[in-house]
Design a protein around this nucleic acid. Structure first.
Length: 443
RNA sequence: GCGAUUGUGGUGAAGUGGUUAACACAUCGGCUUGUGGCGCCGACAUUCGUGGGUUCGAUUCCCAUCAGUCGCCCCA
């Protein structure tokens, strides 16, 4: 028997409703911020990610899915969304569009060859947004606000927004040099990973979880101390606009991000939910002013974020988020072979009229049919047998009121539509304290 | 890449070096061949992730492997 590949998962019908609901919320909020969807290929030229994300990042150096195609081209399954969107932005010359600030979002599968864990899969779904064409800190603030609004719309309230700035290229270089000098003597006292980072990506030492409490790191040079005037003003602007929008955040001077392309603002959103385990960062993003240029485009700034949707789903689970309820409007029960043709006609009529309808295909007995109707959460059950056929009638049972009526079979569709538009009072067990004051209750 | 832990029916799970692998829920059938959800009766794992080894004999012990889970790393 085959089984799914490690780190992948099947999204079964019982779960897809939740995902559809999640995606709909994302699209709705995106509309509010006026971001438009972009869909780019799931695989790109390998080189794009090496140049875009960074040669030395773990994601590119040891986590990509690479393959050579029959034309000897080197392809890579995208490990993140930004590089592909930037490539498309450049290739399609969106920078020359009538709308100078392009605001885009995507929802799609990403692939990373990692050790799977809860909220971490090899094929996973990211929702991300990118805004190109403005270096205005208003746009950084908008992006953060956008991310926060997504969570708000999903009613995930227990979140923390961490922000920081690492400055522009000049500031980044200054800080990096200072950091290297500062650590030169004592690098041996830090953890093994930090010693590797010292060579490959010194910045990351700042958010080391092992050594974070040591005096050495507490006093280490922070990016914020090496900002030039431009960088400082930019960050002040971001903070100012976040404040004006009433967005809560914490400035975390040690926050840095994994990808090389970030400049200025970086941020993360963490959710404090047990269901997430160690994977509690549900959103990460920041500004990347040099990425478009370094990938061969014009000198256009950008800023963006991305969410891990599996992690969002876990977060939603802990707040008992229910997706779209599953139901059918009508379950049709046909009794007797002779009635099936009429039955199929009735069924189709209802479907074409917009009623979600189903029927028994296994010739089950009444008991079985009722069970199926329950499983499918049918709102109405219609019964059509020999007697009904003779009289051109059909029985309709309202599954909420349990009332059954016998009507002309051609009126079934209209009957159900009418009933749906005038919902019957739901039956309930009443006692003396019944709060139903409308008098429609028969208790 | 590293460490820990788990793997028995559709589901949740007992269990033992030896042939009836508990129990519960679900499902199916019957009582009830046109009105169900209750009740009673009955059915439902030639098999214990996979492969190999030890053994007269392994689901049970050992090794390997695959997969899940948790942590580290990294990240969303």
């Amino acid at each position: 028997m085959f089984q799914k590949m490690k780190g992948t998962y099947d999204l079964l019908p019982s779960e897809t409703g939740k995902w559809q609901s999640l995606e709909r919320t994302i699209r709705n909020v995106s509309k509010l911020y006026n971001y438009s969807e972009i869909r780019t290929p799931i695989f790109e030229n390998t080189e794009l990610f090496h140049r875009g994300v960074g040669e030395d990042t773990d994601i590119v150096s040891k986590e990509t899915y690479d393959f050579i195609d029959r034309g000897k081209r080197s392809n890579t399954l995208r490990p993140e969304g930004t590089a592909g969107v930037v490539r498309s932005y450049i290739e399609n010359k969106l920078y020359a569009d009538k709308v100078p600030v392009q605001k885009l979002y995507y929802i799609g599968n990403m692939f990373r060859y990692e050790r799977p864990q809860k909220g971490r899969y090899r094929q996973f779904v990211q929702f991300g947004a990118e805004a190109f064409g403005s270096n205005n800190p208003m746009l950084d603030a908008e992006i953060i606000s956008y991310a926060v609004s997504i969570l708000k719309a999903l009613k995930i309230n227990d979140v923390e927004v961490h922000i920081n700035t690492i400055g522009d290229e000049e500031s980044k270089a200054l800080h990096k040099e200072a950091l290297i000098n500062y650590l030169k003597e004592d690098i041996g006292t830090l953890c093994k990973d930090c010693q590797t980072r010292y060579i490959k990506n010194p910045l990351r030492i700042l958010d080391c979880k092992v050594d974070k409490d040591t005096e050495l790191l507490k006093n280490a040079p922070k990016p914020v101390d090496y900002l030039n005037e431009t960088s400082k003003q930019h960050f002040d602007g971001v903070v100012k606009y976040l404040n004006s929008m009433g967005i809560n955040y914490v400035i975390d001077k040690n926050l840095v991000r994994g990808f090389d392309y970030y400049t200025h603002t970086v941020f993360e959103v963490n959710a404090n939910l047990e269901t997430l385990g160690a994977q509690n960062t549900i959103c990460g993003g920041g500004r990347y002013n040099n990425l478009v240029k370094s990938l061969g485009g014009p000198d256009v700034p950008g800023v963006g974020f991305s969410f891990g949707l599996e992690r969002l789903m876990f977060a939603l689970e802990s707040i008992n988020f229910e997706g779209d309820p599953k139901f059918v409007h009508l379950y049709l029960m046909i009794l007797g072979e002779e009635q099936k043709e009429d039955g199929m006609a009735i069924l189709n009529r209802c479907r074409l009229g917009g009623l979600s309808s189903d029927i028994d295909f296994l010739d089950k007995a009444m008991k079985g049919k009722f069970k199926q109707a329950d499983f499918l959460n049918a709102r109405f059950i219609a019964i059509y047998g020999e007697k009904e056929k003779e009289e051109e009638m059909i029985n309709v049972k309202d599954q909420i009121t349990k009332q059954e009526v016998r009507i002309n079979k051609h009126k079934l569709y209209n009957h159900i539509i009418t009933e749906l538009m005038n919902p019957a009072q739901e039956e309930h067990d009443c006692d003396e304290d019944c709060e139903n004051e409308s008098g429609t209750c028969s208790c």
